[in-house]
Design a protein around this nucleic acid. Structure first.
Lengths: 347, 347
DNA sequence: AACGAAATGAGTTGCGCACCTCGAGAAATT
DNA sequence: AATTTCTCGAGGTGCGCAACTCATTTCGTT
């Protein structure tokens, strides 16, 4: 093994000695506790800066003796994507437990503002922080704001509540995601003219409307030869989506592209395969699952727009931990990118 | 604030009491130290499992009192991508310092096996772990193996040395990256016939050859109408690449695509712009920089294949820390994806 | 049966910090 | 001048664990 390469780290004691005060005073300054003259505060702070003192995380953590409880509030009917987020949270549990941190996951009907609000009010205060897949609704916003007011850290996950006082949003920019899908479809179509159909889960969900806004904009500006159809709602359901897609294919011989805004991609894929149009209709959807992965491999789908569930879970946890410990966050690190996945870069 | 939600964590003491042994014995079992009867070991282990005991990271860290030193060995002439990795390492320094961890960055000529080997031999043993941007060469491999033998943790970064005993490779699958680039070019060309030119830095670098292998395969199988030209080496240099690209454009009226395998994208972009061909030649390159970002925005480039430098730096550090502390690593978490970036999903 | 060596156990110390008490001196107020 | 308030030093305690010392037991060997 290597020689112990001690960094000769400066400790509280060093700072106290150098500043000519007691450890207690340094501690008071460090935690903005009252009872220290301004001049002394300044002197101590100067010494801290000069020595480059940083409290050692391990010692602070141990002495503080606090434990932390976080909770992920997820949709009751977990689709594959949500299930993967949850799975990653579970995976991190052991690691977190060694750091006195407990994570729960509760499921609720996040599409029902009343139910979600009730859940938040019921359990929110039992935790130090919450990651919420939230509906953007005034009542939900109020519930979040109340929790923040009560000192609970809140981050929104996947779907944002922009006007609330949540500390962070962990997820992608859905307008940009829609733009990305539109641009890929436009380019993959390869100069042909025709219609592009859009199937959504529900236009009451802000992420779905955002994505439609995105594709509308890019189609209007970059691909004037393509006609974007109005979105049809299939409630993220495979069967419903299959029916919708089959009708779209039958009724529109000039269909050149399909964009599935939400889940239920398997149904659309089945309809395309049934119609024997897998080769010439460009098909782009969201979220990498067993289905979309297979569709990419067999060439039925052309691209999947995805946000990495593991990264989102990890990022949410990291942010909650930092917030609870009042540590700084570097927002650039926490940006969730819009992943474009084609057959060739499948992870 | 919330009531202190103690997780009532089990401690060493609890385990000792429950198992009817002393703390010291539990400690011996925990660290496989000798001097405990087999039956006792079993009893203690059973108790640990039953109580779900996990050593608290903070306390262990503090008691261990060790500090850690890591070093990033980077190319001397930093291109933008490498500089960004370095920047992220610097950014994490404060956080790491609070965890008794020091990170250095040294620059060396990683393309010169002798120089790189010497650097590794010189400084390697001063550290607990190294992240190396390495040339795949027998001497380098031997140097890495020697370090591993001596107990230094080694991960390769961006460019792998597959046959060495390095613990991990942090970077992308470059064959897949080449395939991805090829597939995008093929599809963006939109059915036209013609030639696709390839400009590389040096075919002595394994990541560059790998990428060429990738694009060759996908072109051969998926796009028979396109003729892939042999790669021309421009040493990742803007001026050289500009000359090369200008000649390619002039001499090949049927040029429909350019793939830049390495750096020096700005030169190629300039040549394309000069020739007034920015619209109809599909141009794909690597790594998101100020140049490639601008090219994407003005439509001169069609896509950038990228590996996220921040993520790579972070991942390398995380792996080194886990290795040094003998903590488990979840490989799935550490996979670096191949990012496809077009104008619409620019971060 | 006697002896040394190995096996096993109990107890102790200290890591660096947060948080607490107590009391002395200084400054401000009455 | 008496009182209150502010400022600050001194000191202690304990967080949970790693790592150590030393006492005791067990065992194999002579």
């Amino acid at each position: 093994m290597n020689e112990t390469s001690d960094l000769s780290l400066t400790t509280l004691k060093d700072v106290a000695r150098e500043a000519g005060v007691s450890i207690a005073t340094v501690d008071r300054v460090l935690h903005n506790r009252p009872g220290v003259r301004k001049a002394t505060v300044q002197r101590v702070e100067e010494t801290i800066a000069r020595l480059g003192f940083r409290p050692q995380a391990a010692a602070a953590e141990l002495a503080r003796g606090r434990s932390y409880r976080f909770c992920f509030v997820m949709p009751k009917s977990l689709n594959v994507f949500m299930a993967e987020i949850q799975e990653h949270v579970i995976l991190e549990r052991a690691w977190l437990a060694a750091r006195r941190t407990l994570v729960d996951v509760v499921e609720t009907d996040v599409f029902d503002a009343a139910a979600l609000t009730e859940t938040l009010e019921d359990i929110g205060r039992r935790y130090d922080g919450l990651a919420v897949v939230a509906l953007d609704h005034p009542r939900v916003r109020a519930a979040i704001d109340d929790l923040v007011e009560a000192g609970v850290q809140v981050v929104t996950l996947v779907s944002d509540v922009p006007s609330s006082r949540r500390a962070h949003y962990v997820g992608i920019d859905n307008i940009a995601a829609g733009r990305t899908a539109g641009s890929l479809i436009g380019r993959f179509v390869g100069g042909r003219k025709g219609k592009v159909a859009v199937i959504a889960g529900s236009m009451a969900l802000s992420d779905h409307t955002d994505r439609f806004i995105g594709i509308s904009r890019v189609m209007g500006s970059d691909f004037p030869d393509l006609e974007l159809m109005m979105p049809i709602e299939g409630r993220d359901d495979d069967a419903a989506n299959q029916t919708i897609a089959a009708r779209l294919i039958a009724e529109n011989p000039d269909l050149v592209g399909i964009y599935n805004i939400g889940a239920g991609t398997a149904g659309i894929g089945a309809a395309l395969a049934d119609a024997g149009r897998s080769g010439d209709v460009v098909f782009v959807g969201h979220d990498l699952t067993v289905h979309t992965r297979r569709f990419l491999l067999i060439g039925l789908m052309d691209a999947v727009i995805s946000q990495n569930p593991g990264r989102e879970a990890h990022s949410a946890l990291r942010i909650l931990q930092a917030l609870a410990r009042k540590e700084p966050i570097s927002p650039a690190q926490e940006v969730i990118g819009i992943d474009i996945i084609i057959r060739e870069n499948l992870p």
